[in-house]
Amino acid sequence: MRTRTTGAIALAAAAALTLAACGGGDEPGGTGATGGGDGGEGEGGSLTIGIKFDQPGLGFMEGEEPSGFDVDVAKYVAEKLGYSEDQIEWVEAPSAQRETLLSTGQVDMIFATYSITDERRETVSFAGPYFVAGQDLLVAADNTDITGPEALEGKNLCSVTGSTSAQRIKDEHAAGVNLLEQPGYAECVTALVAGQVDAVTTDDIILAGLGAQPANQGKVKVVGNPFSEENYGVGIPKGEVELCEEINTALQEMIDDGSWEEFVRANTEGTGYTPNESLNPPEFQPCS
């Protein structure tokens, strides 16, 4: 029997064996991902994956079925690790809670537009990256004036409360831009379609995912002039090098067999968006 080597999985497997030996079949077992049987690592076990629940096109929970690019990548990796879709438990992973979810063992891995940074590496480890995004602009489909952040001088730009993206444009590119705050990016796109703002800004693939929603298709477009780099990685518990390497192997297979390109296209259809070809598909960073 092949057994997962992560700390959470090893502990869960050991707990399950102990309970079985003591005749405690009615007692609850571990909650981490567990392997079992000769049919693969996921047989009889589960995999807990953190995703965003509120990012259409990336990670969006509608009813009980999640959708989006991050979700497609997560399902692909899970299958390569030996887990079927019905063995995945999806957990909401808001940006501010991702490190806590991993360090406390509430999730086995996270796919949630999770940018790899040195600060985060102090607490968690990363596989990948599986995508390199960049801050960009979403504008009306017929807008030909706004081609980059400098063109926003005197324009109205939607800013999500608590986000630094719009403020960065004001500080570094267009001091005269007018910022309109909204609680979320979906509300920003609604304001854009209604003509209340001239542009929305955040990572390009997030903008493309929003633009691909049926209500927005054909009405908005991604400018396609990114001005930052954000490496989206798979968050895993700190120091899980072997798990990182297994995930990277799965990610490479996803790229090689064309699934990566298919997932991008399916979740950004109708927006005219294409990833930055000089950065994507990305090169993986060393596991540590």
Rank of each mutant, 00 (worst) to 15 (best):
A127W: 03
E122W: 02
D136V: 10
D145L: 07
Y130S: 11
T117I: 10
V124K: 01
A112H: 06
G105N: 09
E119V: 13
D136M: 09
A133S: 15
A141K: 11
L101N: 04
L138R: 02
G134V: 09
E99G: 14
M109Y: 01
S125E: 05
A127T: 07
Y114D: 15
L138V: 06
A133V: 05
F126D: 05
T144K: 12
Q97G: 00
G105V: 11
L138F: 01
V132S: 03
V132A: 06
T144F: 00
R120M: 09
E122V: 11
A133E: 08
D145A: 13
D118M: 09
N143C: 12
A140S: 12
T104M: 08
V139Y: 00
Y114C: 07
I116G: 04
A133N: 15
A133G: 13
D142Y: 00
T144V: 13
G128W: 03
V139Q: 00
R98Y: 02
E122R: 14
F111A: 11
Q97E: 14
Q97W: 02
V107F: 04
E122C: 07
D142S: 08
R98Q: 15
D136E: 06
L138M: 14
Y114V: 07
R120Q: 06
V107R: 04
S125R: 09
V107Y: 03
T144A: 12
T113N: 12
M109D: 00
D118C: 06
V132H: 03
T113R: 10
S103P: 06
R98L: 10
T144I: 08
S125K: 10
T113Q: 14
V107I: 08
Y114W: 11
I116V: 15
S125W: 06
E122H: 06
G134C: 09
